[in-house]
Design a binder for these strands. Structure first.
Lengths: 201, 201
DNA sequence: ATTAAAACTGAACAAACTGTCCATTATCAA
DNA sequence: TTGATAATGGACAGTTTGTTCAGTTTTAAT
């Protein structure tokens, strides 16, 4: 990994990155032009091409950096001892994930919630989220434990959509009824229930 | 809703839609040009603009159609009787979802698994999917019930990512530890455990 | 402090695609 | 059959693109 330590390069790249993220949250990745980036970064347009092939290359490099950093911070963490799964290990792993994302919050928030045009996944997520919110409020349930509504519904809707996408990408190899059974099972008992293990506090 | 029933319009729109979906799966939405669409649809480029403002407008219209159709097929379905949640109702609702998506499989599969450049959500989903697959295989668990590995892992990773995105979009209002606790709880006991209800078979 | 390397600038260039317009032709519904 | 309208194909100017190049600044290293 050839690291450049020329001050000019560092400065320019930072200017480009900042301008890029700002522009994405303003108008979305799609409608950004290299002219825009150079303009708000206050650099010459030609300078941009000294560092990146085009705006897609820029996006790729930023993405790779973020994922590499995330990957470092999230190490394999689960272990079995006497056929027992340590809950504390699971929790620690999740804490690392949330911390890692918080440490790059500008990038992640911008990339994960920018309203770009070709983003059908996001639209479907919103669709399911709304559907389940309606169901939830229609039921008028009393909650035993205090889990915020948003967490519960984003968990539910994303899980189901995730399985749907997996199913599509694997050529819909299972019948609708079979899929519905699997999901129902996971929803009621929790994914951990599948395994023949016990839990330590 | 002014419905056109001119044969020429119907024919042209179908040609455009088919060409569009084919091109998306070939090279992704981003790099498609109106020239491409007109070319593979074997229509004049000007004709495209007779029906759509640009390729984004085309995408929007197709998306709206698909979501409207999905919305029709998925009706609110959960009811409580004597504080009991009918599992069969939940299952039926999910079956409807899977059936509805299967009935528009070309559109949904193309839109949900096309490799377009600005698609960080998809990349993160893949990232988590891989991470959890590694954990899974590392653990070498014995499964009680036969839930396909892909379903389990896509459920897990999508659920967690969904909560993360919700958390980001709500300004990270909870601490990492709190989030980890909520998710752990949902994973172990299932989202349904939160409610003070019982289930009917 | 000097210097050689390099990064940056700004302007110019052809190429690709865009969205619009027009006159002409082909196809449709009635 | 006919009047309406959809489709064609070509032309148009306007953007953005990616590249090049000569001239200038800035940097790292001596």
């Amino acid at each position: 990994m050839s690291e450049k330590h020329d001050l000019r390069v560092i400065r320019t790249k930072k200017l480009i990155k900042d301008a890029f993220l700002e522009l994405i949250s303003q108008k979305g990745f799609t409608s950004i032009t290299v002219q825009d980036i150079a303009g708000t970064a206050t650099i010459g347009r030609g300078t941009f091409y000294l560092h990146y092939k085009d705006k897609y290359d820029l996006l790729d490099q930023l993405t790779d950096q973020a994922l590499a950093k995330l990957s470092e911070l999230i190490q394999p963490s689960f272990h079995l001892r006497d056929n027992k799964l340590n809950l504390e290990e699971l929790k620690q792993m999740l804490i690392h994930v949330f911390d890692a994302i918080r440490s790059e919050k500008t990038f992640f928030k911008t990339m994960l919630s920018s309203h770009d045009t070709p983003n059908f996944t996001q639209q479907l997520t919103q669709f399911f989220f709304n559907k389940f919110t309606a169901e939830y409020e229609n039921l008028n349930l009393s909650q035993k434990k205090e889990v915020p509504k948003g967490i519960l519904i984003s968990y539910l809707s994303s899980a189901i959509l995730g399985v749907i996408i997996w199913w599509l990408q694997n050529d819909m190899m299972y019948a609708s009824e079979y899929m519905a059974e699997q999901i129902t099972n996971l929803l009621i008992n929790g994914p951990a229930s599948i395994f023949d293990v016990e839990y330590e506090i």
